[in-house]
Write a protein that binds this DNA or RNA. Sequence first.
DNA 1: CAGAATTGGTTGAAGCTTCAACAGGTGCTC
DNA 2: GAGCACCTGTTGAAGCTTCAACCAATTCTG
Lengths: 153, 153
Amino acid sequence: MTEPRWLDADQQRDWRAFVDGSVRLTELLDRDLKSKHGLSVSEYEILVRLSEAPERRLRMAELAEHASQSRSRLSHTCSRLESKGLVFRGGCPNDKRGVYAHLTDEGFDALDRAARDHVETVRDFFIDIIDPSDLAAIGRAFTAVNKRISEAG
Amino acid sequence: MTEPRWLDADQQRDWRAFVDGSVRLTELLDRDLKSKHGLSVSEYEILVRLSEAPERRLRMAELAEHASQSRSRLSHTCSRLESKGLVFRGGCPNDKRGVYAHLTDEGFDALDRAARDHVETVRDFFIDIIDPSDLAAIGRAFTAVNKRISEAG
DNA sequence: CAGAATTGGTTGAAGCTTCAACAGGTGCTC
DNA sequence: GAGCACCTGTTGAAGCTTCAACCAATTCTG
């Protein structure tokens, strides 16, 4: 068995900073959103994507794709959001298998309130403490990661 | 209520690339590690930290800190690792409340096997597709994030 | 030194995610 | 147009995480 190409010291340091940082950051954002607005990050993501979609509705499969969630997970989470009155699901005329998830007005308001706090926290713990050129580098890097993962799909 | 400082278009784009990318990447790594070695990323992290500790053992609280996990979660996960024979827990002489988690030889071997595959996947989907200076930027940025979160503690 | 406050770690229940199986629709092919 | 492969979305169970409550040991305080 050949020796793998281990990371060098710098790569190791940077990779670990990322792993730790992203875990801690998402946890912090999740806790923040939950305590102030009763929403998890993944629920929040769903509301965001719906709010941006034409007519504030999206097919389940599309929504799953946009929110980086499995269909099963989305299905469960939508049930919860539906029971909170933030989302409702209705059939699709063209394709009788299809289901549209719609953002309710109440859902839109909840999202608006949450987003105002959320953006401040994101700034506080990420955007505003990072050099703008480093942020651009992050953008480039993770765009490449997304592309790579999609290709491997 | 004053209008919050929304992100500008570039910030938004970069932030979202990161959110999506990191979710997808961790999911991919998790699936990879699980299918090839039956370990989740967080179990893997625990084994890594133990393997690097003097005498391959660490107090539970320290281990939780290093692995960015809650104590409760660590406790449950260690129970699972213990029943797989990769870790065992023993008391602490000085502080009778304390518990040391030890890496077993079997645990060390399992980690060694897993790490060889893991590093290739990390390279494939992250390190090797990113410009080295962008990786350095990521290191700087997330080091700052970690610092900020610790300070806010 | 007694009592209170803090720290270390575990536990069980509730909540969320994953996984595999499924029901119903669509569309392709022969 | 019957059969077959594929796609959509849901479901329930199993697995993992979070949360709050808890016990035990240590340390602080008067």
